[in-house]
Design a protein around this nucleic acid. Structure first.
Length: 588
RNA sequence: GUCCCUGUAGCUCAGUGGAUAGAGCGCCAGCCUCCGGAGCUGGAAGCGGCGGUUCGAGUCCGCCCAGGGACGCCA
């Protein structure tokens, strides 16, 4: 937003350095770090140090940097668009004309409306694969991180101008499914889930695990059933298809609840054959070694690459009995994606960090096999959601917190508060708000930290709506809307603020102005946290402003400026929440 | 054994190589005749260790310590 001014200043400083016989400066700008001040800053330490080296001088770098900064400040004088230039402790600080820049930022936000922060199309298509749920199992809080992280990543990439394809890869076949079918056929024939489908499926899975644990002899029956599946026994296939659909229906309900959608579903069961073919091709081309019947089919990556130290190790691509592994299917899936969408510039996999090596191996194998798109595949790892005591959530152990339970508890807690604060609202409206708050809080907890950090789930934190959490941001949004509703008229026309802005106001405007840039950063680094942090900071700055600066009671000239600021803050916070997939309510 | 991730306040986390390391929770003390107290103000409290690079290191490099994870037929 300030590129032109910055460029002009840079040219002047360069000219000054050239004239003073100094080396060419690099000029890295940063924001003035003192809150309540708004402007850009650069230091001359590097330049001073470089000069000393080149000229073989022994100087005090800090002093020399200050001298250079002084000189630059003198040359710049009072540049247009800035209200103050200072050289202090080796830094050159340029303070914006806050009135002018504030007007510029607010005008941009209000003109762009819900597009503010978003970047027009880049013409690049990216696929994000996320939320790979196993059918016939429960959907618990541990599964939530991939679903939400992937969804938010997709939203951020879209906002940053990418054309995003959202892909789901359900695990719809495998031993866990056959076990479930075995239990169903033996003990539950004819039963159908009525409501809470996913819970019902999960309960049956847990029951299955317990039965098999209690009696090891039953494994033989499961194996027999697996053989029937492998032969595509019509009865088994029909039951598999029917029960799989129950799971998918259940997942659909949960995704709808979470406002998560997919453009394409790749089912695990549909890439098995293609995977085996691909492996055969690798064997023929000498990339994979067929060690059957004594061993499996493997790709000796380090050997193929001529590496001395072990790095990629060995990837098993087919079992010794010829059946497919996860790796078999992943090879085919990657190819399928680029066959369906040849123009993908990136194929992202949002999968937990434990599979880092696996994906490195798969992608490297594809690269060796000569697929030109192999280098466009990238794993986006994230850490797990665990229970206190670093206990993993495991369906077969039953040590899980179900998504349904979390949403229900959180909504109940939120509803209590909403009722107390908004007794006049209809019950439906109260419930709607409570759900928005609950879902927002859940979402935020999954994306407000580094992807590589473990989320420890505990009920107390999950149900705490105070402080650094989505409800705090939603609350700031509601308060801003409340002021505008009370005002009830058109926004005042644009103009330079006719008063000196307080530090709180400057801080708020500055944060708002960052939104477009931070969305880009979040997209480039695949780090939603960058945006969730900004959203929180904007909300915090708004609450500061709200407490310190009366709007409607202020004298008209001040009031008009602040009304535009409130409207812009509301817009920016709302847009940020939108990109995070958090509902911005009108009351709460 | 090899590789990856993590280590910042009592707890949970931020912190583009740059100025005074910031939030939340919890604790203590305050703030509703004033636009919504899911809020605000103030207070106590911190970079795992040792070296190195650099004008400058929480940040980069090396080694160590601690926790977690992955390492040929689980997904």
């Amino acid at each position: 937003m300030f590129e032109q001014e910055q460029k002009r200043i840079e040219d002047q400083i360069r000219a000054y350095c050239a004239g003073a016989g100094l080396p060419e400066p690099k000029l890295q700008w940063s924001w003035i770090p003192f809150s309540g001040h708004w402007g850009i800053s650069t230091s001359f330490f590097q330049l001073a140090s470089q000069e000393a080296r080149e000229k073989g001088l022994k100087v005090n770098v800090a002093e020399r940097a200050q001298t250079i900064a002084d000189g630059a400040a003198k040359v710049l004088g009072q540049p247009q668009g800035f209200e103050r230039v200072e050289a202090v402790r080796g830094y050159l600080n340029l303070y914006f004309s806050t009135a002018e820049y504030t007007r510029r930022v607010l005008d941009a936000v209000l003109a762009e409306g819900d597009q503010f922060g978003r970047t027009p199309g880049k013409g690049e298509r990216v696929m994000v694969e996320f939320s790979q749920p196993n059918t016939h199992k429960a959907f618990h809080v541990g599964h939530l991180r991939s679903a939400i992280l992937g969804d938010v990543l997709a939203r951020i990439l879209e906002a940053a101008g990418y054309d995003v394809v959202r892909a789901n890869y359900p695990g719809d076949i495998g031993l866990h499914v056959v076990k479930w079918l075995w239990n169903y056929m033996k003990f539950h024939t004819g039963e159908k889930p009525q409501q809470d489908i996913t819970r019902w499926m999960g309960d049956l899975y847990l029951e299955t695990s317990k039965r098999l644990e209690a009696n090891a002899d039953l494994e033989a029956e499961v194996r027999a059933l697996y053989v029937r599946w492998d032969r595509r026994d019509p009865e088994v296939v029909a039951l598999w298809e029917e029960t799989r659909q129950w799971s998918l229906d259940g997942f659909k309900e949960l995704y709808d609840l979470l406002d998560i959608r997919f453009d394409v579903y790749y089912f695990n069961s549909t890439v098995e054959q293609a995977g085996k073919q691909l492996v055969n091709d690798l064997i023929e081309r000498g990339i994979a070694s067929d060690e059957r019947p004594d061993g499996a089919v493997v790709v000796k990556l380090d050997e193929l690459l001529g590496l001395d130290k072990e790095k990629f190790r060995v990837l098993v691509v087919l079992r010794s009995d010829g059946t497919a592994l996860y790796a078999t299917e992943d090879l085919a899936l990657a190819a399928r994606k680029f066959s369906d969408y040849p123009d993908l510039t990136k194929s992202l996999y949002v999968v937990d960090v434990r599979q880092s090596l696996h994906f490195q191996q798969v992608f490297k194998t594809l690269e060796i096999a000569g697929f030109p798109w192999a280098t466009r595949c990238q794993h986006i790892p994230y850490e797990l959601v665990t229970l206190p005591g670093n206990m993993a959530m495991a369906s077969r152990e039953g040590t899980v917190v179900l998504l349904e339970d979390l949403v229900r508890e959180a909504t109940a807690r939120a509803l209590e508060i909403v009722r107390g604060k908004n007794p006049d609202l209809s019950v439906e409206k109260q419930q709607e708000i409570a759900l928005a708050v609950a879902l927002g809080a859940i979402r935020y907890s999954m994306i407000s930290r580094e992807n590589t950090k473990v989320v420890t789930f505990d009920w107390e934190t999950a149900l705490d709506f105070d402080g650094q959490a989505a409800p705090y941001i939603q609350y700031a949004y509601v308060r801003a809307g409340s002021i505008l509703r009370k005002w009830g008229k058109e926004l005042p026309a644009s103009g330079l603020p006719a008063y000196d802005l307080t530090p709180a106001e400057v801080q708020l405007v500055e944060l708002i102005s960052r939104l477009p840039r931070e969305i880009q950063t979040a997209a480039n680094d695949y780090r939603p946290m960058v945006l969730s942090n900004l959203a929180y900071e904007m909300a915090k700055a708004f609450n500061d402003f709200y407490n310190q600066c009366p709007v409607l009671q202020a004298e008209p000239a001040v009031r008009d400026g602040r009304l535009r600021l409130v409207a812009a803050a509301r817009q920016a916070i709302g847009n940020a929440l939108g990109v995070l997939g958090v509902i911005a309510p009108t009351a709460m």
